[in-house]
Write a protein that binds this DNA or RNA. Structure first.
Lengths: 173, 173
DNA sequence: GGGATCATGTAACAGGTTACATGATTCA
DNA sequence: TGAATCATGTAACCTGTTACATGATCCC
């Protein structure tokens, strides 16, 4: 899943411990409104990322507080993140979550990568719109055509939105 | 999940056995393109529906073939199906799957229910569009506004599509 | 004194996916 | 003769959710 990658993205900005990362996903935060991540899952992902070598932990002891495990991105983790960020998503349904997460991470510290991401995504949706238009025109079954038209409308809407997103990214550069 | 309900919907047309129902979900069929249902899951659902009392099975023995279990809808199952069909979905993401399935079942034998379903769904999307428009106008954070605008575009597209779907249903009546 | 906060997890459960088991029969 | 079809399932697995455990400290 893509959830692991946002953790990599957040850790790229600065090393942090689990409890601190969990705050980022509280109900009323920007990330929290896109994705819900319970602390138990967060710690599970951090463990997984550590075992994969994408993240490394150092223990920070505190007076009168439980010790913290501070996580930082490794070189392998940074490579993994870069590859993920550059790649647009294939399936339309992944725009709502995975693409938004990529954009969220890319936007604020890699504007050129964000721009490339949006362009790549635009091309994918454009090709899908073309393909679906052709299929819908040929389709004789009413219900199947309805289904194709739904997907068509969805992807047209996404093209509109991606154009806006592109402006947003280029204007903040 | 909504998968159980399509089984009820298919069984409403005529009693059938599991293997026969499985054909409906093959890769190149109308239903198969919307939802993927492996035979193992299909049998599991049928078992669940039987235990819930929505479906009842009679065994049909055959010469030189394994016996079939023919499933038919019970009164309780018919009630359950009716209630599900009449109810539009709340979340936008459920349009792609659950709403399409409701429409698929309602369309061919209950056109008035299908029309009501579409109207109800239209109202929900309309209210969402209004609410999102207001939120987006007030939102100062660029990224949050982008997220709201994505949802806005998606729901506007759905309104367009629902209008088409309404015409389709009323024209085939 | 009692609840929220800090900080980390484990354990049980629920849901769906994949792989496999069975065994006869039809078709190329 | 070997693959596909008929007809039914079981079992293992993977992923994510929910509930709970621990124990101190800060704030009201």
């Amino acid at each position: 899943m893509s959830t692991e990658y946002i953790l990599l993205g957040l850790l790229k900005r600065e090393p942090r411990h689990g409890y601190d990362l969990a705050r980022e996903f509280a109900a009323d935060t920007t990330l929290g409104e896109i994705i819900h991540l319970e602390p138990s899952m967060l710690y599970a992902y951090l463990k997984k990322l550590e075992q994969a070598g994408f993240v490394r932990a150092t223990i920070q002891t505190q007076a009168s507080r439980p010790p913290r495990r501070i996580f930082e991105l490794t070189e392998a983790g940074a490579d993994e993140l870069r590859a993920w960020l550059a790649e647009p998503v294939e399936r339309t349904r992944d725009l709502r979550l995975e693409f938004l997460l990529k954009l969220y991470i890319a936007r604020d510290d890699e504007p050129n990568i964000a721009a490339g991401l949006i362009s790549g995504q635009y091309d994918i949706s454009q090709r899908l719109v073309d393909s679906l238009s052709r299929q819908a025109a040929d389709e004789t079954d009413d219900f199947r055509r309805l289904v194709l038209e739904m997907r068509l409308e969805q992807n047209r809407a996404l093209l509109n939105w991606l154009a806006k997103a592109r402006q947003d990214v280029t204007s903040t550069t």
